[in-house]
Design a protein around this nucleic acid. Structure first.
Lengths: 235, 235
DNA sequence: TAGTGGTCTAGACCACCCT
DNA sequence: GGGTGGTCTAGACCACTAA
């Protein structure tokens, strides 16, 4: 039942990175250094570093060390290449409904657990644009009792995921997505500045996190006409 | 420059699985058995098995062994949960244009290399249905010179990917996808039995494979009205 | 050249599965 | 109980990076 030592070491290093003790590009302690600090052999220290590698926290360079990596390039479809990455400079985000207590969404293609439903729900809505073109209407829901004080403070660097990581030590581990194409209704058409009945892409996402009981539910409504949604990943 | 021993062992085991020496659910030789066969220590044998685990070839069960797994659950969007898996029994595939030499597609959001363009192109088109409902029109393109004799034989168990794996030893390693919602044009509407201007989901995919020079290009046109496209993965 | 990560050996103890 | 995988130790040699 005890956590293995390599897991302990990995968790420690991850929390250090999340706390900002090591910035992007910095070198983590070497394998031998970790062996000394935690009184383990290199096999064990290496296994810990391997976890960080495969989770995308570090890149290992032969002869140099373990370098803290740019965080996750493609986390499902939410990290939208072709707009927040590909387009880069011209991307902006406007908060339409700031985080606050609200009703749980209905109609998502995921089962929301009884535990979650018994908690209050925090919801917020944002509009993402490329230049002056609105391209994505984004809604997010999650259980309030797991993230105390969430609604009271600004996001870390304007990023929801950075806020989860830095403030609560929560990492996104994976996601489940359901995609549909549909006609724009009146409200969506107005928000995304398209015609009613124009085709839009609806993406429902359930993110799993490093805390077992916490899921993040997102619904993205995308105008893909000018900026299609890109997504890549590798096994 | 020499391949490490664990890589040798992993490659050997993968080729055995691809050749069908071990079927789904079968147990691979145990770690100790591999140690004997390849005259290595457990560390090395384990590292080989870890590669197979992370590539999705096997599942390891404590106290039992390494069991050959059902191949890849979520390979990008092509392996469509919510229809070919979720719906299961009622799924059918009809070959509209069997594999044959054709023109390279234009208009995909990927750069097709000069090497590929200088080769002939094999193309085929399939229609996938759930029960009587056509839900996806699928087109595939790839360089003919890399897969000799491809057009001359039937698919292995009706599966394109199984054919690549069993016949050519090629595994899909990852994919890059671009998504758009668009109006159905006349041809698409007829094929998918929807109205002209109904919203459809267009998915363009570039698959990377275990052979560096080989890519598979796919274009999927999906009627998501009744059967949305599902996709999940984990880091 | 000193320090780093990559590979590998030869053991050990334990928890788990099956019979 | 016998075999399996999970964890861990205490070394070794090598290739790579940076000063």
């Amino acid at each position: 039942m005890e956590k293995p030592r390599y897991r302990h070491i990995a968790d420690f290093l991850i929390s250090e990175i999340q706390k900002g003790q090591y910035g992007v590009g910095d070198l983590l302690p070497s394998e031998h250094e970790l062996c000394r600090q935690f009184a383990v052999t290199r096999t064990t220290a290496r296994k810990a570093l391997e976890i960080l590698t495969q989770s995308g926290f570090i890149e290992r360079v032969h002869g140099l060390g373990s370098r803290v990596a740019e965080r996750r390039k493609s986390l499902g479809l939410l990290n939208v290449k072709g707009f927040s990455e590909a387009v880069g400079a011209g991307v902006s985000t406007r908060m339409l409904i700031p985080p606050r207590l609200g009703r749980w969404v209905t109609g998502l293609p995921f089962q929301i657990s009884a535990g979650e439903l018994s908690s209050d729900c925090i919801h917020f809505e944002r509009l993402r644009s490329v230049g002056e073109v609105p391209v994505m209407l984004e809604n997010n829901w999650f259980a309030a009792d797991q993230l105390p004080g969430f609604a009271d403070r600004e996001f870390v660097e304007g990023s929801f995921f950075k806020t989860l990581s830095r403030r609560y030590g929560i990492e996104i581990l994976g996601s489940e997505q359901v995609l549909r194409a549909l006609h724009a209704d009146g409200k969506a058409a107005a928000m995304l500045r398209v015609s009613v009945r124009d085709p839009l892409l609806l993406i429902d996402i359930r993110f799993t996190t490093s805390r077992e009981s916490i899921y993040i539910y997102s619904r993205l409504l995308c105008n893909t006409h000018r900026y299609p949604i890109g997504n890549s990943y590798f096994l």
